[in-house]
């Protein structure tokens, strides 16, 4: 059951991720990216990491992608003046070759890797739950956790600095 579910989710993820790149319309791309985030959250749930799944939805699908959509909707307002992007045949061929080479290298690299297995007897199925995650974050990884919060604070201060009114500038 969960294996077929995994294959379904994985193929859906790949399909939507491809559609993000292929779609001509940027709004469609963003919507496919949102679906991709949902399918990735589905993978997290299959791995019994419910907290990660919920936070992925809240932060990425719920906040960041709304801002993406927001910005792209603004850009799209001047659709008529926008010219069709033309790609020359030469760059298309070059892109195909480069992409194909990367694909070959990836397959060659991944072919012989051993997937880290797990011991079914010692495996803790509760490892992805909120409680165990909180305990680990506040004991073992306390310093990285606090440093990340400092990083966020710096980013926030930077954003406020960029968005601040300059003297003499008109805002309304």
């Amino acid at each position: 059951m969960s294996e077929s579910l995994f294959f379904f989710l994985a193929s859906l993820t790949l399909l939507c991720a491809l559609m993000v790149v292929i779609s001509k319309n940027p709004v469609h791309s963003v919507l496919f990216l949102i679906i991709t985030f949902f399918t990735i959250s589905g993978h997290y749930i299959l791995l019994n990491a419910q907290f990660l799944a919920a936070v992925n939805i809240i932060v990425y699908a719920g906040a960041i992608m709304v801002l993406f959509l927001f910005v792209i909707m603004f850009l799209n307002m001047s659709k008529e003046s926008e010219k069709e992007v033309k790609t020359s045949t030469l760059s298309k061929i070059a892109g195909t070759i480069a992409g194909g080479l990367l694909f070959v290298v990836m397959i060659a690299a991944l072919k012989d890797t051993e997937i880290a297995g797990y011991n079914a007897e010692t495996y803790d199925s509760q490892i992805g739950m909120v409680e165990s995650l909180g305990v680990v974050l506040f004991t073992e990884y306390l310093l990285p956790f606090e440093l990340a919060s400092v990083l966020f604070l710096v980013a926030m201060v930077g954003a406020v600095m960029l968005g601040k009114k300059e003297t003499g500038e008109q805002h309304f």
Binding site: I58, V66, V130
Partner: peptide, 23 residues
């Protein structure tokens, strides 16, 4: 065991219907 986060996630998705329809 993430009920509150579930609600919060769904609430944050609510805006998509409005945005997609409006656009």
């Amino acid at each position: 065991n993430i009920g509150v986060l579930y609600i919060f996630g769904v609430v944050s998705l609510g805006v998509y219907g409005l945005m997609i329809g409006g656009w």
